[in-house]
Amino acid sequence: MKQKSETLLFIAWAVSLAATLGSLFFSEILRYTPCELCWFQRIFMYPLVVIYGVSLIRKNTQTALSGLILSGIGGCISIYHYLIQKVPAFQSAGDACGTVPCNAAYINWGGFVTIPFLAGTAFAIIFICHVMTIREQRSNA
């Protein structure tokens, strides 16, 4: 595996690890109860730490291909969740989201940075890194 591909996979792994630790910080330290959409985002984020970690150890980007799919789906969920929080036309969908409404925002830094925004940013970075890794490999093949 080339150095650039390794660096991109390391970035994807580091971002997934930071996002996982961040979500655990919000729920376990700050005691924010995750809503249902937050749980779905966690379902798609947590395995990425293992997938990209194994890929780095094995120096094999093929083992990380499922990470591309997981980050794409997780990113779509994050976008939808963010729309529920920030766009009035979507907010009524967040009321029926379980014990914690999905349209509630535990944090709202700068008026736009919420937990789904942070997760969506992480998913986007991971997805882009993975696409760049694939393009790098194809150009070197």
Results as ranks from 00 to 15, higher is better:
V49Y: 01
V50S: 06
V50R: 00
Y52K: 04
V54A: 10
R58C: 01
R58W: 01
R58E: 02
K59D: 05
K59V: 08
N60H: 00
N60D: 15
Q62K: 15
A64I: 08
A64W: 00
A64R: 00
L65M: 13
G67N: 05
L68A: 13
G72I: 10
G75V: 04
C76P: 05
I77C: 02
I79Y: 12
I79K: 08
I79R: 07
H81K: 03
Y82S: 09
Q85H: 06
V87Y: 11
F90V: 05
Q91G: 08
S92W: 12
A93F: 14
G98R: 07
P101I: 10
N103W: 01
A105G: 11
Y106F: 15
I107R: 10
I107P: 02
N108W: 11
N108V: 08
W109L: 15
G110S: 04
G111E: 06
F112D: 03
F112I: 12
V113T: 11
V113S: 07
T114A: 14
I115L: 14
P116T: 01
P116S: 08
P116F: 05
P116N: 06
F117G: 00
L118T: 11
A119H: 14
A119M: 14
A119Y: 15
G120N: 08
A122D: 05
A122M: 02
A122V: 04
F123E: 01
F123N: 01
F123S: 05
